[in-house]
Design a protein around this nucleic acid. Structure first.
Length: 526
RNA sequence: GGGCCGCUAGCUCAGGUGGUAGAGCAACAGCCUUUUAAGCUGUGGGUCACAGGUUCGAACCCUGUGCGGCUCACCA
């Protein structure tokens, strides 16, 4: 029996939809603003199910629909040049300019930014652009069907509305072909393809033909079921905002069956994603929106997948930017060790972790266990070397060339985290050998002096952990002979090295830093 | 008002198909007589929100109650 929810849903799709070739799995959102990490849950959820289906040897078509024929309703807080954008309200978002100047229009800017990132996390659907489809009148038949069944649709929608829709309501929304705004009223329909409207903004009145106009669009609650039938969608999850009773999935299910004669796709509801630990550190460029790009700054792609693959869709969870980051990396490494049998756990646990690990990979599962460089240790190494990612990695002889890219990513994430979100107590930087010496008491001076002696006489061997032990022991003798208690001595060493009262375990820290470098820093006390 | 989710150790949360509760953090103790804890080892700690029910047996299934959160009833 399947242990992971993605496999459970894959099996459910096959059971409920019967054998098909291919199965169509769909996801989609509107690019009417920066796409945030909550939206990502939608697409990663589908991607995991797509993988599960493929592993059951079924063909799958994975489509992602950008609803970029959506109306530009309001200017999001985080956009540049809001004044310009305001002039485009009520027009389709494909006609709104990209005020950053990088892309052809507003919708495309939000789309392309995300598409590039999705590839990095192993998500590669076939992208569908609604604006293109509507403008090419590809949905003409679907729209005509909706018009024919307008009474049925109105009744279905009215069951859940407070204010019933008017008798002369049409299940369409029209962008005026003269001013492009959706401030229009329908005047009539010929029972076939011809629809008349009047625009309240510019006064334009005309009759368009569904087969060759770009003006007519279906409202969301009708558009969705129409596309299920059009694409033959078998699976599409949705957020809890769509999944309440009387919500859009509910009405879409009914419209799909009653109007389009199509059985709604298998679905599930996913909960929202919260953000934790960005207090006071919200990046200026992105406003309050935390997007996939922000998460990729801190988490490697595999680990982002791990977060989503390891959580049941129907429960809320937080993506953390605080100290939890350490735990997440440790959890992932542990999952990896369990996968490769380097750590034993109960069979039940193992089975689950294995599956989560597989689903977390961007590409193929590595043939052998990758070299693990603990995130915490990496944070120390990078701080010793001022964020020099390559310098740090080059010092580690165990790293094989093919593992380098992943470790570079991890190191970059570690450095990003240290410099943006890590708590102050976690950060340090080595004092420069040129910095003016701190004022020390007589005993302290002597202790530093003796430490220098210990370090100068210390012979390195091949065994790092033995060295650390030996050095540790050698250091113990220093405070006593200098007339300091152990506690003050360690505090003193951290002060002269990093100007803090505490730091990484001393002996290992000195060795990792390099004794020569430590001696240079200490030499000003001679 | 309808719907969904949650309530498990001090905190954050795990606990497919019922078999007598578990991990991380925190706390505490120890770690070659003096050791910073961001290392290692170990220990303690829970009426599984409450009340009923089904069962030989319930954190888990059923009913109800309370508390908290989200969501729909505009738009998408």
């Amino acid at each position: 029996m399947a242990v992971h929810w993605a496999d459970v849903y894959a099996e459910k799709i096959i059971r409920e939809k019967g054998e098909k070739d291919p199965y169509v799995c769909a996801s989609g959102i509107t690019p009417s603003g920066t796409v945030h990490i909550g939206n990502f849950r939608e697409i990663i959820s589908v991607e995991l199910v797509v993988r599960a289906l493929k592993e059951l040897r079924r063909n799958v078509r994975f489509i992602y629909s950008w609803d970029d024929y959506d109306v530009f309703r309001k200017v999001p807080k985080n956009m540049e040049d809001k004044q310009t954008l305001e002039q485009y309200l009520k027009k389709p978002i494909t006609l709104v300019p990209d005020t950053t100047g990088r892309w052809a229009n507003y919708a495309e800017a939000n789309e392309k930014d995300l598409e590039a990132l999705l590839h990095q996390v192993g998500v590669d659907p076939v992208y569908r652009y609604q604006a293109e489809k509507y403008r090419n009148s590809e949905y003409a038949e679907g729209i005509r069907t909706a018009l024919k069944e307008r009474d049925t649709i109105r009744d279905i929608l009215n069951k859940h509305r407070t204010q019933p829709l008017a008798e002369d309501w049409y299940p369409v929304s029209v962008f005026c072909t003269s001013c492009n705004k959706n401030t229009t009223r329908q005047l009539g329909w010929d029972g076939n393809y011809r629809l008349s409207y009047a625009c309240d903004s510019c006064g334009n009145e005309e009759t368009v033909d569904l087969r060759n106009t770009a003006a007519v669009k279906l409202p969301w609650r009708v558009d969705w079921p129409m596309r299920w039938e059009y694409e033959g969608v078998d699976f599409e999850p949705a957020g809890k905002d769509h999944h309440s009773e009387g919500g859009s999935f509910d009405t879409a299910r009914e419209i799909s069956r009653e109007v389009y004669g199509y059985q709604a796709p298998v679905t599930f509801q996913y909960d929202f994603v919260r953000i934790k630990g960005r207090g006071g550190k919200i990046s200026s460029s992105s406003g309050e929106v935390v997007g996939l790009s922000d998460v990729l700054e801190i988490y490697q792609p595999e680990i982002i997948r791990y977060l989503f693959a390891g959580t049941r869709p129907n429960s809320e969870f937080a993506i953390s930017f605080d100290l939890d980051v350490l735990k997440i990396y440790e959890d992932y490494d542990r999952c990896e060790r369990i996968y490769f049998g380097k750590e034993t756990v109960s069979e039940k646990r193992r089975e689950k972790e294995r599956r989560i690990y597989e689903l977390s990979q961007v590409g193929e599962v590595p043939a052998a266990m990758p070299y693990q460089l603990p995130f915490r240790h990496l944070c120390n190494l990078l701080q010793i070397h001022d964020g020099d990612v390559n310098g740090v990695l080059e010092r580690i002889s165990e790293i094989e060339a093919q593992q380098r890219p992943r470790l570079e990513q991890r190191a970059q994430c570690a450095w990003n985290w240290i410099t943006t979100f890590a708590p102050e107590s976690f950060r340090f930087s080595l004092r420069s050998p040129d910095a003016a010496p701190l004022e020390l008491e007589k005993e302290e001076k002597q202790a530093v002096d003796e430490t220098i002696g210990v370090l100068e006489n210390f012979q390195l061997s091949d065994d790092e952990s033995a060295d650390e032990k030996r050095l540790g022991e050698a250091l113990y003798s220093v405070p006593e002979s200098a007339g300091l208690d152990g506690k003050s001595y360690f505090k003193l060493m951290y002060r002269v090295l990093i100007e803090k009262d505490r730091g990484p375990r001393l002996a290992g820290f000195l060795l990792t830093t390099g004794l020569e470098r430590v001696l240079r820093i200490l030499s000003v006390y001679r």
